[in-house]
Design a protein around this nucleic acid. Structure first.
Lengths: 185, 185
DNA sequence: GTCTATATGTTGATAGAC
DNA sequence: GTCTATCAACATATAGAC
């Protein structure tokens, strides 16, 4: 455990940001060092390899996803939770259009990397599927699995298309449609 | 124009295959040279830079997409065309689960590259949106744009999720659902 | 714990013989 | 047109002074 510096956190934050914005392979350790204000040589004190760093970034993302779902779970009804999830996503539409989905784009890129990196990335999508599925189960849907697959696929696809076309508007439209779909259930 | 060798085509084929399977950034010119049987140094006779090579790969993909749509357009009704499009995609489910969508994954990765590469990649998704939209227009739908966005987002999202979870079955299920959706229109 | 300097390997790209 | 040999730049990773 470090005493106070917080350099480890800064490195993870910068890495997460840059991996999302310019991709894992196109982000060098030098870039991360510069962005976080940590000298290049010092990076290896905290993370022996680049693989260790991306694993930590994925852990952080996993934690944040978990916290988010815990927050959403405070809402009384599953329908409200799903709507709130979509609304929160809507807030990010400009970043999504600019850089793509922080989960989906990393999954695609890291899918080609060796274990355990790709496994960890895939786990994020499994978490998403699981939480959404739970909401549909609580809504009394027999085909909760299928519905959650449908919803998460639409969400990820919207990010892909919105990002390709650099259009927050497209994301807004599609999320609006999905919200109506959930509300009408 | 080359006389007979066909090495240029071999290079483009290998590049397209490897870019899809392991990604653009993770594929070196040496990899492409080896896969195509063309000596490394000779690659630069055909393509001055790696950027030129990816542009040619994107051109090929664009041509293939165009040919595909021309074939589909032979079918009498727009509904049949859409169903055939989904059925053709279904055929590729194992490759999609293994490597992701050849269009979507490249778009995501090349999005961060400099012009004109990213533009060319985005153009592929625009082609898809355009063709699907035309089918819905011909089906008499007033909200053809919205429907085509919905369909293409579902398709790309299915590829992302199916690839992340390495599941051709998921792709099969979701494409089956989309097919029913189109048929019921 | 922090940093400078550097080792080591790989990449995209070139030069020039054939 | 084809290929061998090689350059220069950049990457990750390490060694070791402070």
């Amino acid at each position: 455990m470090p005493k106070t510096s917080g350099k480890r956190e800064k490195l993870v934050d910068s890495a997460g940001k840059l991996f999302h914005q310019v991709g894992f392979n196109q982000t060098s350790l030098a870039d991360i060092a510069e962005d976080s204000g940590v000298p290049l040589g010092n990076v290896h004190y905290y993370f022996k390899t680049k693989a260790e760093l991306i694993l930590e970034v994925l852990n952080h993302r996993s934690e944040r996803l978990k916290s988010w779902y815990e927050e959403l779970n405070e809402l009384p009804s599953p329908k409200e939770r799903l709507v709130a999830m979509i609304d929160d996503t809507l807030t990010l539409r400009h970043k999504l259009a600019k850089y793509g989905c922080p989960v989906g784009s990393l999954c695609q890129e890291l899918d080609k990397e060796r274990e355990p990196i790709s496994k960890k990335a895939d786990g994020l999508i499994k978490m998403q599927l699981k939480w959404i599925s739970e909401q549909f189960v609580e809504l009394g849907k027999k085909n909760a699995e299928e519905l959650s697959l449908q919803l998460i696929a639409s969400l990820h696809g919207t990010a892909v298309v919105g990002n390709a076309l650099k259009s927050p508007k497209i994301i807004e439209e599609e999320l609006g449609r999905l919200k109506s779909w959930v509300k009408a259930m």
